[in-house]
């Protein structure tokens, strides 16, 4: 699997990154090298092996179901780069593709 420039543009769209066009050729080369390296995993025999996550945590214990106060709206909005009244402000998006 090699990564071409059009693949980088596609991935950037999926990842919501607006890459600068001049950066794309170098990114494609770097990603291609890394993907070529990680492709060595294909050679490992994983027949009958299940996907694995750290099992050290015995069972995620549940919190007691007691009401607690969360962040106030004012505190949550305190660091917002743009807000409108008691809400985060975003551009209109209903007419996006």
């Amino acid at each position: 699997m090699s990564i071409e420039q059009h693949d980088v543009r596609h991935l950037a769209r999926l990842a919501k990154l607006a890459l600068d066009e001049p950066d794309i050729p170098a990114l494609a080369t770097e990603l291609a090298r890394i993907v070529e390296y990680v492709a060595e995993l294909a050679a490992v025999d994983t027949t009958g092996v299940e996907p694995w996550l750290p099992g050290a945590v015995p069972a995620a214990p549940l919190r007691p179901d007691t009401p607690a106060r969360g962040l106030s709206a004012e505190l949550a909005l305190d660091q917002a780069p743009r807000r409108r009244e008691r809400a985060f402000a975003v551009p209109a998006f209903v007419d996006d593709e």
Binding site: V38, V44, P54
Partner: peptide
């Protein structure tokens, strides 16, 4: 090919 495979190799490392 990549993500699920890596999770399995992770099991072998463990």
């Amino acid at each position: 090919a990549y993500y699920a495979k890596a999770q399995r190799v992770r099991a072998l490392v463990a």
